[in-house]
Simulated scan of single mutants.
Amino acid sequence: MAKISIIIPAYNAAQDIGNALDSVLKNKSDMDIVVIDDASSDDTCSVVEQYMSRHSNIRLLRNEANTGPGVARNRALMSIDSEYCMFHDADDTLVNGAVDILTSLMDRADVDFAFFNYFILRNRGAVLEEGGIGAEGTWQDALGGQELAIVELDKAPNLLLMVNYPWNKIFRTSFIRRVNLRFSTARINEDILPHWVAFMHAGRFLAVNRKLTIHSLIAGSDQHTNVYDERRLAIFEAIRETESIFERNKVFRDKYYHLFLYFKAGLLGWALSRVRPDLRRIFDEHVTHSYRGFTDEDFKRIYQHSPDLALTILKLKYSPAGLATAA
């Protein structure tokens, strides 16, 4: 059994997958590196196969049809047998030794997962930016100025509002199996579901305020951040799958649903800026439908935390006109 599995979904990533693999391979840990190709039409598989000829710990899975990154990751998850699991993107790179650092920290911590800070790369060859813009206060509140801390969610619930990336976390595989952690089948925002599942089920986790990965957000690329067409509407499927957790679990609903409503309003406001004008009417209809389940009890609970947001969401239940304000 490998110490850790690194799952890398790839789609038309021939230009970047080599750099991603190089950064993963710069670790001494016993790694099972799983690249799952999502029916690429370029030379992604050929590049990976060249690496496989030199590194026996790299595996390649192939999807016959393009499924999206969530479904691809879920398939790869079914194939692993390791102590730990990390997700990595095909166009990202790890800081040298990141895997070794994280597995060592997890070995010493009695937690089911850890999350860590990151850099942002907006243009190839550009200077790295600080990751988690706007989250500095949340990091400080959770860690009390320390670089490492085991944090209890109920003492730092605003961590739920941090961006729901999958590639800045490391999990015990046994935890993934126990809580049935998976990604949404939605093609965009598929990572909302595992973010909320992981935090709420774990309850306590290791926070590592060290930048251990470099996430690419290249303007003009085909990354999901830059999608403005019909694919953006998949956000509502991702939200619906996540909200179903609160419908099934009263404890989670009572303790955290008001935070999810806050998160949801901000997320939809962000998505609104990434919808083509000709899709706005359809997007608005989805917004109204998405808030139909907002109850009087939900209103009272969120009103205690943020009266303005409670009133905005109540308006959104009947009209999406206030969405920009909610963001």
Score class of each variant (00 low, 15 high):
I214M: 13
G269C: 11
A271S: 12
V251L: 08
T295R: 12
S221W: 11
F183M: 13
D298A: 06
R187L: 04
R231M: 12
L311K: 11
A238W: 00
H258P: 02
I188T: 08
V287Q: 01
H289Q: 10
A202F: 09
T185P: 11
H258R: 11
L181C: 08
D191H: 03
M200Y: 00
L309W: 08
K255M: 06
L259N: 01
K250P: 00
S290V: 01
S273D: 13
N189T: 12
K264H: 08
L267C: 03
I245F: 13
L217E: 15
E297V: 11
P194A: 10
P194T: 12
A265T: 05
L279T: 01
T242W: 09
D191V: 03
H215P: 00
D308M: 13
T295S: 15
I235Y: 02
F283P: 04
H195R: 13
H286E: 10
H215F: 09
R276M: 10
L217M: 14
H258S: 14
H224Y: 08
F252A: 09
H195M: 07
I192A: 05
L309I: 12
S184L: 02
Y291A: 06
F236T: 06
K255W: 01
D284G: 01
V287K: 02
N209Y: 13
K211C: 04
L309G: 01
D191S: 11
S306I: 00
T295V: 07
E243N: 03
A310E: 07
S216H: 10
R248W: 04
L259D: 00
L233W: 04
F205E: 00
N226H: 15
F205Q: 05
H224D: 11
T295A: 07
T213N: 13
I218D: 08
Y257Q: 09
W196M: 04
R248E: 06
D308T: 09
R232D: 01
I302A: 02
V197M: 15
Q223H: 15
L279M: 04
R232V: 09
N189S: 12
T242K: 01
A234E: 15
T242G: 08
F252S: 07
Y228E: 06
F283M: 05
A310Y: 04
K264F: 07
T242P: 03
R248Y: 02
N209M: 09
A186G: 06
S221C: 11
V227S: 09
D284T: 03
K250T: 03
Y303F: 06
H305M: 14
D278V: 05
K250G: 02
N209D: 13
V251F: 08
H195I: 00
H289A: 15
S221M: 06
E241K: 04
L279N: 01
R301E: 09
V208C: 04
S290Y: 05
D284V: 04
S244Y: 14
H201M: 14
I235P: 01
R276A: 08
S290P: 05
L206N: 05
V251M: 07
P307A: 15
E241Y: 01
G269E: 07
F183T: 08
